[in-house]
Design a binder for these strands. Sequence first.
DNA 1: AAATTCATGTAATAAGTTACATGATTCC
DNA 2: GGAATCATGTAACTTATTACATGAATTT
Lengths: 188, 188
Amino acid sequence: MSLEHAVLGLLSYEPMTGYDIKKMVDLSVSHFWPAVQSQIYKTLGRMEADGWLTVETIPQEPRPPRKVYAITETGRAELLAWLEAPQPPSEVRLAWLIQVFFAGRISDEKVITLLEHQLNIQRRRLQGFRAIPDENRESMSEDDPRERFFWMLTVDYGLASAMAQARWLETVIASLRKGEYRLPTIES
Amino acid sequence: MSLEHAVLGLLSYEPMTGYDIKKMVDLSVSHFWPAVQSQIYKTLGRMEADGWLTVETIPQEPRPPRKVYAITETGRAELLAWLEAPQPPSEVRLAWLIQVFFAGRISDEKVITLLEHQLNIQRRRLQGFRAIPDENRESMSEDDPRERFFWMLTVDYGLASAMAQARWLETVIASLRKGEYRLPTIES
DNA sequence: AAATTCATGTAATAAGTTACATGATTCC
DNA sequence: GGAATCATGTAACTTATTACATGAATTT
């Protein structure tokens, strides 16, 4: 499971509570591996049982005790091994492509509306990714430049993928508006 | 759930058994919505309970009886409504990007190996998508051209996405080989 | 006065995967 | 002789989501 390894990665920087990890996940890997709070707590429990993490429980009334998780040597070895392990092809599920596949059942106008909706989604994603370098300008400035490069590489990928999808959608929408049935990539 | 609607879409062409549907799914929507056999049978059961499908059980000894599913009016209405419904942003989970995010922990050579593995995956996908038009040349020739266009559009999307990912990976690998830390998209 | 932050969790549900089970017929 | 085709399903498990629950302190 990959969430486990993302958590190991984050804890390899410093010990944290589940609450902190949730925030870090949202700021870092959530673009390509989202996780809700309950999933993180459950995963932490399993990882501790597996000996990848240790917990230090720090009481603090009246709040629930802080449970600070730290990575163990076993956990560090597991992280290192996983980081080098070739990952199988990612399965991507795109409901809107099912809609396109069966679009013969609806009118061109309705197909265009559907594609425009996806285009808006990609444009918002694009803006989000473009904003990240500025948002992180200060918080990241003290970090190791090589590490920072790999972080930014994941942002760059998001940018590239949102751009590619937006362009494809724009081309298809333009064709359909002209009443043409052109395949943008195959009919280069 | 989208598998349900993919199944409705397939059954909107003609009644089929679960076995047939599995084969059709593999040939059509599996590129963007894969499904294993057990999942299809479970889904068919639920859809029948919901009144979207009817079953006709045709005994045939000694094989298990053929259960031929047909779409109902309710099912057809559900399909039509869903085909027009804007879909929320698809959540994509890419484990290899978690590896990139934490690649600061491993050497450049190991990162390159990891990226080359992903590049190979995309190249194989590319070849697969390129082969589809030839494979389907005869089987699809009698179908409605508008319908065929939308089918091919999903193939075209697969092609475009595999190409975009392959190009991005090639650029990153080339940079890393030169010892450069360049972001292909941001540093245009 | 209301919303956010901190900080933990559980319960129910949904969706999907892996593995198992049966068994004749037909193709290579 | 062995693999693929046809045709059904179940059981156990994993991963993730949604919703609920508590409650003080701080910020807007």
